[in-house]
Every structure is written in structure tokens, then in C-alpha cells.
């Protein structure tokens, strides 16, 4: 199958996934105790107020009807109106999605930038003090909870040294990137620990491979052997790891967005769940599912590009 055909096939696969996830999240959201009305009106509302609002939102209709309405509208690209925010769901998500995407992308870049060279050093110095030091440092990073690391970075680098603003999102592309550096670094720290461990093990494994000996026997310099032969092969598994972790990274964005006051979809998702804002929960889950699917697709494509052994 040609590469273009493969991409098309994979993209088409997203459609049934989409529908299945739509159905599942529709049910799951409603399985949570409470409903948007109890969340919104709170403890003080009277029965009439509750009944009225429930009718207004169409929540008193049978589940089947609600689902068909939801599915029907969805196929037209209409995801409804946010119950809590009273604005169209697509508008809210479109407003908040870029921040999370940029944050996640930046975190990935930082994580890879941090992990790859250090994994390299650790592997080539395996057993000696640089390796031990690097592995210990990353272990600390991996074990530290995100909100703690985030607050620590804020206290030291933002409030303390004033190198960065204390949270927020800023204005303009440059402003956004500047404000997102610290939160991206926070996310990157635990992510990079995973990458570092994986890459270090992959490098060590590849170093034992016979083609490395063959390359050395050709009289190639250490640098050529390490980069062209060892690293290029070791990175194959790292690429897969990074792609598969996109979903996890999006999840980690939630806490980071709260600590750094970044207006992304992570916070939106949490707030919507607490508010039982069904339209937003449903739409956002679908959007995130599509993003993760696309990430998997891109990962596969990159793998295909890097590793000629992967069947096309």
C-alpha cells in the first residue's frame, strides 16, 4: 500500500473510533453521580428551580432521545452549548486548545532536548559516576509530583529570580511562548526521565550489536559510530515512546495549567467534569481522542520514515 493510501486508511479509521468514543463518553459522563443542574445551582436551589433548569437543558428527556440529539448534532459539527459557560462549545474549545497544544509540544521538545544528550552520556559512561549522577537526578525528577515541581520552579525562577513571569499566558506568540516555558519545563521534567531511561537502555543494547563492531572494524571514528550507527538505531524506540506518551502528557497538562494559570483545555476538562458540563466533556473527549489518534499516526509515519524495516 502506498504511503498516501496508508495515511488515508488510518485517517478513515478515526471515524469509527470517534463514534465509539462519543457513545462511551456520553454514557460515562452521565454515570457520574449528580448532574449539571446540581453542580450549577448548588445546595441552595429549590425543587422548582431544579426542575425548570433540567427541562430547559433537555435533561429530563429519556437517555435515548438525548443521545440521538447529541449524535445528530455532532455529525453536523454542532457540539452544543456549554451548560456552565453558556457559549458554544466549539468556541470555548477553539479558544483554549492552542495553549494546551503549544504547552504539550514545547514540553515534548524540552523533554527530548534534555533526555537525549544525557541518555547518551549516561549510556556511554555506563557504570561510572556521570551515569550514576544522571540516573539519580532523573529519578528524583520522575518521583516528584508535578504541582510540587511547578511551584518550586515558580518560586525560584519566577517570583525569586524574576527570569520568568509568575504564571499566566501573555499576549502574542512571543508572549505565549515566554509564559509557557516554565510550565513546559515542569511537564518536561518527568517526561524526560521516562525518555532518558528508555533511550539509555536502547543505546546500551545497540552498543552490543554486531553492526557496531562491524562499523568499528571499518575504521570509522568514535563519533561516526556513536551517532550514525548507535544513536540512529537507539532512537527508533524513543520515537515510539514519545508518540505513545502524548496522551499522558496531555493529562499532565491539567495540573500544570492550574498551577501556572494557563488557560488550556486541561483545566477546562477538570472544571467541566466538576460542573457536569456534558456538552463540553463530550466534545473535549472527542477532540482529545482525535489528537491522540493523530499523534499515533504521526508516530507511525515517523517510524516508517526512520526505520526502513517497518512494512509499508
Amino acid at each position: 500500500m502506498s504511503r498516501a493510501g496508508l495515511v488515508a486508511a488510518r485517517l478513515l479509521q478515526i471515524v469509527p473510533t470517534f463514534l465509539a468514543i462519543g457513545a462511551v463518553v456520553f454514557v460515562l459522563a452521565r454515570l457520574l453521580p449528580g448532574d449539571p443542574v446540581s453542580a450549577m445551582l448548588g445546595d441552595r436551589a429549590t425543587e422548582e428551580a431544579v426542575t425548570r433548569l433540567r427541562a430547559q437543558l433537555g435533561l429530563d428527556q429519556p437517555l435515548w432521545t438525548q443521545f440521538l440529539l447529541f449524535a445528530g448534532r455532532m455529525l453536523h459539527g454542532d457540539f452544543g452549548t456549554s451548560i456552565a459557560l453558556r457559549v458554544p462549545v466549539t468556541a470555548v474549545i477553539a479558544e483554549r486548545l492552542p495553549a494546551t497544544l503549544v504547552l504539550t509540544a514545547l514540553a515534548t521538545v524540552l523533554a527530548v532536548g534534555l533526555a537525549v544528550p544525557l541518555a547518551f552520556v549516561a549510556a556511554t559512561q555506563a557504570g561510572r559516576w556521570p551515569d550514576t549522577l544522571i540516573r539519580a537526578a532523573f529519578q528524583v525528577g520522575l518521583s516528584s509530583p508535578i504541582f510540587y515541581v511547578g511551584l518550586l520552579l515558580l518560586t525560584v525562577f519566577a517570583a525569586g529570580l524574576r527570569w520568568f513571569p509568575v504564571g499566566g499566558y501573555g499576549d502574542g506568540v512571543a508572549g505565549h511562548l515566554y509564559h509557557l516555558l516554565l510550565p513546559a519545563l515542569t511537564l518536561a521534567l518527568s517526561f524526560s526521565a521516562v525518555i532518558m531511561r528508555n533511550l539509555r537502555a536502547a543505546i546500551l543494547e545497540v552498543l552490543q550489536a554486531e553492526f557496531v563492531d562491524f562499523a568499528r572494524s571499518k575504521g570509522l571514528s568514535r563519533r561516526v559510530v556513536l551517532f550514525r550507527h548507535v544513536l540512529r538505531n537507539a532512537l527508533l524506540s524513543t520515537v515510539t515512546l514519545v508518540g505513545l506518551q502524548v496522551g499522558t502528557l496531555l493529562g499532565g497538562a491539567v495540573i500544570t495549567e492550574s498551577v501556572f494559570a494557563v488557560p488550556g483545555v486541561g483545566r477546562l476538562m477538570v472544571d467541566s467534569i466538576f460542573a457536569r458540563d456534558y456538552p463540553v466533556i463530550q466534545a473535549l473527549t472527542l477532540v482529545l481522542a482525535v489528537i491522540v489518534s493523530l499523534a499515533f499516526l504521526v508516530t507511525d509515519l515517523v517510524q516508517m520514515w526512520l526505520d526502513p524495516r517497518v512494512a509499508r
Binding site: F147, L151, L154, A158, A159, P165, V166, G167
Partner: peptide, 18 residues
């Protein structure tokens, strides 16, 4: 009115004069 959900972050911003 900036929105900052985390207590600690709000206070850091206040102390930093932001």
C-alpha cells in the same frame, strides 16, 4: 481580574508585585 486557580501561585504573583 486575572484568573489564577492555584493559591500558592496567586500569592507568588502578589509577592512578586505582578
Amino acid at each position: 481580574f486575572p484568573i489564577i486557580p492555584d493559591d500558592a501561585t496567586r500569592l507568588l504573583k502578589l509577592k512578586a508585585g505582578e
